[in-house]
Amino acid sequence: MAARGGRALSPRRARLNVLRGASTRAQVYALIRRAIVSLDLPPGQGLSENELAARYGVSRTPVREAIIRLADEGLVEVAPQLGTFVSRISAREVVEVQFIRETLELASLPHAIANVTAADEAYLRALVEEQAEAGRTGDLRRWFATDEDLHRSLLEIGGHPRAWSVVSSAKAHLDRVRMLTLPDPGILAELHEQHRQIVDAVVAKKRRQAQDVLRRHLRLALDVLEPLERQFPDYFIADEDEEPDLARTRLIRGRSGH
Rank of each mutant, 00 (worst) to 15 (best):
A2P: 02
G5P: 14
S10T: 15
R12W: 10
R12T: 14
R13G: 12
N17S: 03
V18M: 08
V18D: 02
R20W: 12
T24M: 02
L31Y: 08
L31W: 14
V37M: 08
L41F: 11
P42G: 11
P42M: 13
G44C: 15
E49M: 13
N50R: 07
L52I: 07
R55C: 03
Y56I: 13
G57R: 06
E65T: 11
A66C: 09
L70K: 01
D72C: 11
L82R: 07
V94Y: 08
V97M: 01
F99E: 10
T103W: 07
L109H: 06
P110G: 14
V116C: 05
A118G: 12
A119M: 10
L124G: 05
E133W: 15
A134F: 02
T137Y: 02
T137A: 00
L140S: 06
R141T: 05
S153E: 00
E156G: 00
G158E: 00
G158I: 00
G159H: 02
H160V: 03
H160R: 04
R162L: 07
A163I: 02
V166R: 08
V167M: 08
V167S: 06
S168D: 09
D175H: 03
R178L: 09
L182R: 01
L182V: 06
P183A: 12
P185R: 00
G186Y: 01
I187K: 03
A189F: 10
Q194N: 15
R196L: 06
K205D: 00
A210E: 03
V213L: 14
L218S: 06
L218T: 07
L220Q: 05
A221P: 01
F232N: 05
P233F: 14
P233I: 10
A238C: 13
D239H: 11
E240F: 08
E242H: 12
A247H: 10
I252K: 11
